[in-house]
Structures are given as C-alpha cells and as structure tokens.
Design a protein around this nucleic acid. Structure first.
Lengths: 246, 246
DNA sequence: CGCCAAGTTGAGACCTTTCAAACGCTGTGG
DNA sequence: CCACAGCGTTTGAAAGGTCTCAACTTGGCG
C-alpha cells in the first residue's frame, strides 16, 4: 500500500532509493525545523495513521485532538476565508508537524490534505507536554521556525517575479528533499499546477509558463510532475537579480 | 516625552482619549493574541525601555537577550534577504510581543523599529519560563496565533486586488485599535505609504491610488496619515466580491 | 475505447508597475 | 520670520507583467 510512493521510505532508509521527492531553497535563512521533535518521540508507542492521496487528515473547524508528525508522504495545509477564498499555506514533508497552528484553540485552523500516500504519527499534546520535559520547548522552536518560514515566503511573494517565485519554490523543495535523503536534483511534484500557483500567488497558467521557460533556458527538465534540476547554480542565479522594491 | 503621541496611553485609560490610533480587520478569523501575556506579567518589576520614532529596538543578527512586550506605541518588524530585499512582516501595537520569532535562535531574525514614540517592557525569557508556570503555554499560544495572522495576510495578498488589500488593512487596524480602547473610526497611520505597500505587496503609488479612490467613493477621508473610516460597512462590502481564484 | 482531470499554449485585456513631475508638510538656517 | 531643502505624498501617462478566456494535448481510469 505504501510502497507505491517513492517518498514513503523508512527512516533509516536514507540513500536507499532516492527516487523522486520534492522541495526547494527559499532565498532566506530557514533552519531545519522539527527534527528535534522526531527524535524526541521516536521511542514512544504512538498511534499510526495512513492516508491515501487526496484524503483529509483534518479540516478547519474540526475539533482538535492531537498533533500529527509526518512520517512519510506529502501534505498540503490550507486556510480558507468565509467568502470561499482559499490559500495553501505550505507543503509538508516528513518531520513536519501538522496542527501546530491551532495549539491554543479547540479546533483546527486549517485543512491538512495528503497529496500522496502518507503516514503520520499521532502526538497526544497534553500527555507529551506533561511527560516529556523538552517537549514544550521543542514545540516553541518549531512554531518560531514556522513563522520565519512563512515570512520567507511572504518576502518571496512580495518581491520576486513569477518566474523567480517558481525557481525559489523548486530550490526550496530540492533543499528539503536533500535533507531527507532524497535526490535534490529530481523532484516529483505531488501538487497540481493550480496548487502551486495558489501557494505562490500566481495563476496556474503562469506557473506552467514559468516552468516551460525555465526548460527552454536549459535549467530544468519538465515532464508533467517530474522535474529535473539541470543547473541548480543557474537557477539560483535567477534569484540574484530581483525586482527592485523602492 | 511620551504624551506627544495619542497612542501612548496608560492601560486603564481606555476610553479616556481615543484620539487617533491604527489597525484594521483582516478578512480572516484572528483572535486577540498576547493579552494573556500582558496580564501574566503586569505585576512583575520589569525593565522598561522607551524609544523615539525610527529608533531600532533590535536588528536581525543581533544577539538575542530578551523578548519585549509593547506597552505603548507602534512598531514594524521586517526581515531582509542577503540580496537586500526587504519585507515588513507586521505592524505591532500594545500587547504584541517582539522577538518571539527567534525564540529558538541565538540572535534576532528580524528588525524591530519604532514608528512612533513607544515603550516596551523587557521579558527575560529564561527567568520567566522557570518562574511562571503558565508562561510557556501562553507563549505557544501567541506563536500559534501569529502564524494564523500571517496566513491571513498571505491569503489576502494572494487573493485580493490592490484596493481590497488596502481595505483589509484599514479594517484590521481599526479592529485592533478598537480592542485597545482607541477610536476604530479615526486611524493615524504611523507608517509611510512605502511601508504599507511593502507590507501589502504593492507599490507605494498603488497604495496612494487605492486610498484616493476609496475617498472618491466616500468610504474614507484621507488627510495625509490621518484616515477616517466614514463607511465601515461599505468598506467591508468591498471585500465580499473577491477576485476569482480558479 | 472514451471520458475526464490536468497540463500546455496562444492572444488579448487588465491591473499594477514604472517613470516622471508637482505638491505639501516640516524643520533648519539665514 | 521667511526661504529653502528634504522627505513623503499625490497624480499622470505609458509600459509591462499577469491574468483571463479559450482551445488543444496528454495521460489516467472506468
């Protein structure tokens, strides 16, 4: 059931089958986030839960019971306004925590949707907080770095052109995948062009055009959702010459 | 020294002199954030610090010592990338915490600049964490709500037109000021048009044009940095008809 | 085999940006 | 006390980047 996805690999299997996976380098300092949590709870007998692609782990408004630590797979989280506008707030990989943003609320503040066959571990918040001395601290760290990550994307969206945003996304995904033991040069996008556009504040056609243009420049190879980074250095160079702000 | 600014009023002075102040309603649920922290530490003998407009409370990269609780005034926080791009991540009022985002780092991740005569109270993080049982929890709450607030703005920037973003900002500021006891109808913007544009991912001229147009519609009165909301309901109505996303 | 979702590409329209100029405050110095 | 410099704001006109709408292609699945 799980082996259909290349991103579902066991923790120690790093380097074993670095097929496709996906994430890119943000043009901003962004330290590794929840690694601390993962090691902290790995010995605990936690509830597992598996999801298929397109399955919701939880929805906004639903009563919050636990946090979830992604063990394998690929998620998106999205918020939506009363008038129906939707915004994808991030794509989440192994090691990321889901549900953190509603820590102080009775119900979840966002949707969490699996974009691939995935597996999560359920973290009973109250219980862990009381039994693990470091838990609270680690959680604060993860929250803080999530804020910095969001700020990085706000910066990117506010100051980069469409093509640069796409490049920033690819490099960020590449970096994140690299950190998980996957190949940083071959990305398998698990989201649609529309999802990507939503996240980057672009229309899906604009995303497509940006990818096509990057391919025409010889910087990447695009084959539907599989993307190969042919020239990471060249890609990074595109971020240097940014749109003037003043 | 402090009385020059209408936003500098003593805590219980709510309703006393609701002159100008400033903040608006985000088109997203956004609970009051750090009120808990304020009441938690109000009895403590904390170090105070006063700043003039344009003065930095701290800068990114500077060694982090404490958190700061805004007691009066108006701040902006901004991140910047290596290549010089800058992004204002938020405007902060009384009750907001500064420095939270770098909780897990040795140095600050953003700049904090006073935009008006301001006063902050210094919170020694380690000390409070060890002595106040609730401190850690409250901090996590503030962090989580900061994330939700950021998401709300990401949503706004990604899905609203220029004019709608300006309206969203005005309403959000109005709401925040109202919560602090200032008049929600008379806003004194403490930031430049360029700052506002930076925050909303717009050029300063676009901000100006949006304000002028809203005034032409009879929804607001603009006099330099003083803005009067003539028709809050009408303003809110502009947010209803949003740009289609699909 | 055919339907359907997702992706690609084109052409034109529109909104925002860019560049430029003028205006208004504010504070400084003569 | 007034002149002038400097910053911030406003407004105009043109350019340009995305968006919108539409058609077509591709691959997956019943």
């Amino acid at each position: 059931m799980l082996q259909s996805s290349s991103q579902v690999a066991d923790p120690p299997a790093i380097g074993a089958a670095p097929d496709f996976a996906g994430s890119a380098l943000l043009p901003c300092p962004r330290p590794v986030s929840a690694a601390g949590i993962e090691s902290l709870v790995q010995a605990l007998p936690l509830q597992h839960r598996r999801l298929r692609a397109k399955q919701y782990l939880f929805r906004a408004g639903q009563r919050r019971q636990s946090l979830f630590l992604i063990h394998a797979g690929f998620f998106k989280t999205c918020v939506l306004s009363e008038d129906g506008r939707e915004k994808i707030t991030g794509f989440r990989l192994r090691g990321d925590l889901l549900g953190l943003d509603s820590l102080d609320m009775a119900s979840y503040a966002c949707d969490a949707v699996a974009l691939d066959v995935s597996e999560v571990r359920e973290l009973p918040y109250q219980q862990l907080r009381d039994s693990l001395p470091d838990f609270q601290d680690r959680l604060a760290s993860v929250l803080a770095s999530e804020i910095r990550r969001d700020w990085g994307w706000m910066l990117a969206i506010g100051t980069l052109s469409a093509e640069q945003r796409v490049v920033a996304f690819l490099l960020d995904l590449s970096t994140r995948l690299d950190g998980l033991g996957f190949s940083p040069h071959r990305l398998m996008l698990r989201m649609t062009r529309a999802d990507l556009g939503n996240f980057l504040a672009l229309q899906l056609e604009t995303v497509t055009r940006a990818l096509s243009h990057l391919q025409a420049l010889g910087l990447i190879d695009v084959a539907r959702r599989e993307i190969r980074l042919c020239d990471p250095v060249g890609l990074r160079g595109l971020l240097g010459t940014s749109r003037t702000i003043h």
